[in-house]
Design a protein around this nucleic acid. Structure first.
Lengths: 215, 215
DNA sequence: GGTAAAGTTGAGGCCGGTGTCAAGATAGGG
DNA sequence: CCCTATCTTGACACCGGCCTCAACTTTACC
């Protein structure tokens, strides 16, 4: 149809921006100033807006594919585990590792990001995979029966916080915390819980950014 | 010695400011804009700076006494419990309740505040109380032996995050999460942990705001 | 009720960050 | 080689929040 859509130099800038954004978001999270992205790409912020239109669009161009790939792999590895509990543990550990190693993924996984359509889709897909992993471990009797997939959010939120506070001081601290948490999720550890799990609707509201505390 | 130190109208303004600050900090956390405090007190922000000099000083005038009182009570109630595990659980629950009901305390307890001297003192004192409560439960064989007081920070950080995200949607959700956590802290649930606890020095660094992730 | 000391105000400078747009630079087809 | 469509730039207006200070208002002592 149309002839030359975008000039060669523009093409290069876009590629450089995508690379830089991936780096900056990985190192500083999805709220990193776009100025930092522009600078690393050797370009002005105006160019970002000209090419992508908004921070959200830039995120959409950079993060979801990678996030989906990583989360899919984590889920596949978990399901490949012969022992269902082992698979569940591997999955949770792997996801927490992703949070620790990539602050962009940390924001995605803990739902702490500007709502972009693609990212919401990735989260949803990932949650369905998690559901299967958890149900398999429950059917096996290893994961406590009153656990709900929605409770995984608690685990990942907690981990996100830990990482924020300890990344510079004790980058492995989260593993210890996760150890306690997993011990609480074994069927043998279960004591009655005081409250029902979040409903999918509540998760929805939280994801949408409503339902946050004012601060 | 000196005659009239502060004029009657000023006195009134100071009182009003202290009240307003307590309210605003409770509702919005210690990072709330001072503009909000001034407005609620019917005063301009200049007055706050004239009277207190800085946000830190205002916090020091408003928060530590209340925080200390609440935390002391929680600790005393816990030690008054005949059963050490029961006491430990009550303590942790009570502290989490404080976090949920007062965002200023949430910031104090999760160490998410501008470093003020008095607040640091309160935290330190509170940690020593927690240590006694935890050690009693460990001596009784109910709390797992590899738990360290420093690990309580994990619990409170996690809770802080949960509250931030769910306060507007499911204000009791944290109780469920805490249920899982406590189940993981019982001696019977213990499996080997992958990492040592934070050292007091690491906690110090984190409290001082160094050791935070860049974002 | 005058006056000096005490108090308050709010505009204004600062910061870091977002998003825009007129003006200038450059690629690359003719 | 030129000319135009394409692209980039960076200064700018804007935001929310911090903190200051010269000008103004009020108290309360005499």
């Amino acid at each position: 149809m149309s002839g030359r859509a975008v000039r060669a130099d523009a093409r290069r800038n876009i590629e450089k921006l995508v690379e830089s954004a991936a780096d900056v978001f990985r190192e500083r999270g999805l709220h990193a100033p776009l100025e930092a992205v522009a600078q690393r790409a050797g370009v002005s912020t105006g160019t970002i807006y000209h090419r992508f239109g908004s921070r959200e669009a830039l995120i959409d161009a950079v993060v979801p594919a990678y996030a989906e790939e990583q989360l899919d792999r984590a889920a596949a590895d978990a399901m490949a585990c012969a022992d269902p509990w082992e698979g569940f543990v591997r999955y949770v550990e792997r996801v927490c590792e992703l949070q620790a190693s990539n602050l962009a993924l940390n924001d995605v996984i803990s739902r702490n990001h500007p709502g972009t359509a693609k990212l919401a889709e990735v989260c949803h897909r990932s949650q369905e995979q998690a559901r299967r992993i958890a149900e398999r471990a429950q059917a096996d009797g290893a994961l406590r029966a009153d656990f709900a997939v929605e409770d995984l959010l608690f685990v990942f939120w907690s981990n996100a916080m830990l990482i924020r506070f300890t990344a510079g001081t004790a980058p492995d601290a989260w593993r210890r915390s996760l150890g306690f948490t997993l011990d609480g999720l074994r069927a043998g550890a279960a004591h009655a819980l005081p409250t029902a799990a979040l409903t999918p609707e509540q998760v929805e509201r939280v994801m949408a950014g409503r339902g946050r505390a004012p601060a």
